[in-house]
Design a protein around this nucleic acid. Structure first.
Lengths: 203, 203
DNA sequence: CAGATTGTTGAACGGTGTTCATAAATGGCC
DNA sequence: GGCCATTTATGAACACCGTTCAACAATCTG
């Protein structure tokens, strides 16, 4: 029932990831299924198991691709900035670009953080490297803080992420309309102010 | 096949929620199923639909109960504080108590934020009220900031939530060991410092 | 042209949420 | 006490899910 090498394994992988991306973007994680992905590629569901260990594996690879797209999105935002922009403006730009990406690609972005690895398993290096790259962007803009940069980068990254989570999943909407960009501004500006003040007091 | 009123509807509801809570706590959201909940109560799966509209409805009610438990946890933490504790210490206590709850009841806490409502539907009032109560706790401690309290409460709440999400789902672990309580301390202290500084400059 | 190899299938298994005709046990009525 | 209506719960049925795998068609090799 099968002619030979209709598509190479690498092509199959790319087709499957593209199909899965479209499905998740349109219907959310709940709408994703092996049968739907396969149908969209014109293959049977079993074929996916030639290329992925299982659906979890496919999701993990899709998530790596999503983080790669996020990284590119952040790079573009920084590139649009005038050359003379200071660290604070660059950090604000990163933070807002993150929120924008989360909003525009809500379902794909959610999938990254809602996919729990099976108990005890560890994140594949492909994903871990992507996370490091993203956090590295923030750390780079905080270099002027010296030893505190690593801590500050994680706080700001987590903080902006938290704002995006609660704003986009309507978990704050219950308390009235939410101006997420204003929250992001407040977080980054006040935190940096506070960091500067703490450094002054210390020396 | 059924004798009459073995349990009242209210009893059935409570039994189902208790069973679901145990399952989620032990196996995570993925382990939850109508058949497992029903089996644990000694009933058939169909019986659940006498009490809940569907599984989504059950999850929503479980989430409301989880937020109620979180609220109680925060109240206890504040109650253990000496009467003379200032707002900053009370906020730090709240933030650390939040993280501790998320860590101890990881699966139940995850379920609250990973459960997306079907497109267009709105959060049931039972849940919304719980969210408002929690955010109200934070706002109360920020009253001394005046008009900025609402904004600051949302920023701090989201920020602490974000730290918990990324730390507990290992999305930061890729970048080395994470001391989540230190991140929480840094966020709350620097943000409050920055807020105070901004108010000084303004007046 | 035969045979080995490869790529793909589709049926099968055990699971899922949900619906609903049906059966059993009770309460009220004569 | 006997009968019926009502209440309560069932479990079979449906359509879907992830995953495995024997089997088959198309190609390559000799």
């Amino acid at each position: 029932m099968a002619r030979k090498a209709q598509h190479s394994k690498e092509e199959l992988r790319a087709m499957a990831l593209a199909a899965a991306r479209e499905i998740v973007a349109a219907e959310g994680a709940a709408g994703l299924s092996t049968r739907k992905v396969a149908a969209r590629m014109g293959y049977a569901a079993g074929t996916l198991y030639l290329v992925f260990r299982n659906l979890d594996d496919l999701v993990l690879q899709l998530n790596a691709a999503t983080l790669e797209a996020l990284d590119a999105h952040l790079a573009e935002a920084l590139a649009r900035l005038p050359a003379g922009a200071g660290p604070r403006q660059r950090l604000l730009t990163l933070a807002h670009a993150y929120y924008l990406f989360a909003q525009e690609h809500f379902h794909l972005w959610s999938l990254v953080f809602e996919h729990h690895l099976p108990e005890g398993e560890t994140m594949p290096e492909s994903l871990a490297a992507r996370v490091r790259a993203l956090l590295g962007r923030v750390e780079a803009e905080l270099a002027h803080l010296g030893a505190g940069a690593a801590l500050a980068a994680r706080v700001l990254w987590s903080g902006v992420h938290g704002i995006a989570v609660l704003a986009l999943t309507d978990n704050l909407a219950a308390t009235g309309p939410v101006d997420a960009p204003a929250l992001v501004d407040s977080l980054v500006n006040r935190y940096l102010d506070g960091f500067a003040a703490a450094r002054r007091n210390q020396s």
